[in-house]
Design a protein around this nucleic acid. Structure first.
Lengths: 91, 91
DNA sequence: TTCATAAATTCAAATATTTAAATGTTTCTA
DNA sequence: TAGAAACATTTAAATATTTGAATTTATGAA
């Protein structure tokens, strides 16, 4: 994982709303629908869409179309790679 | 570690210069002087000072005064706590 | 086909971040 | 004590991010 990628993931994680979104996955087991995020957090729909996009762009979430709905699943692989880079920083 | 702290650390890590600074610790073994950062990276002195401040504010670096110089050491404890939070996100 | 719903995009305003120049503070040394 | 060196702070400009309102696109249902 190169520095650009580390930077992008870190930035994706550097916002209270996005951290809250990721934490919802623990409660909802694996996947989350766009509309659910809307209900669970006090954010407008465009704002949710914007935050989800950043998480997807950082590859932390994988979007899956389900007809009219959009389901997101967590990408543990990228999270693991990111964690490995951070671990590596500690000598 | 609360969400505010996760946000702060993530933000500290979301900049190319600051990632580069942290990576210098691997080469320099444990500690780094302010002036060294200045030489190693192509940044002005106020810019280095600003970036180091953010890393210190996030507790990723611990500053230690040595007379006229300022020595920074990596704080592996906070990094570990941060990593633990990220690991926890993966269910 | 038409309407309703889910989500993305566009746009503008508010706010935050990055950067360097100028200046200030602290501490070592002559 | 005076000057120099190391680092911090202030300020301003450029840029990026966040947010919501309005609009658009895409899909499912009647």
């Amino acid at each position: 994982m190169d520095n650009k990628k580390i930077e992008k993931i870190s930035r994706a994680l550097s916002d209270a709303s996005r951290i809250a979104i990721l934490q919802q996955f623990k409660k909802k087991k694996d996947c989350l629908y766009c509309a659910e995020v809307n209900d669970l957090l006090d954010l407008t729909q465009p704002s949710v869409s914007h935050h989800l996009k950043q998480l997807v762009d950082a590859d932390l979430l994988i979007p899956e179309k389900e007809g009219r709905n959009l389901k997101y699943v967590l990408n543990p692989k990228v999270l693991d790679e990111y964690i490995a880079c951070l671990t590596d920083l500690k000598d």
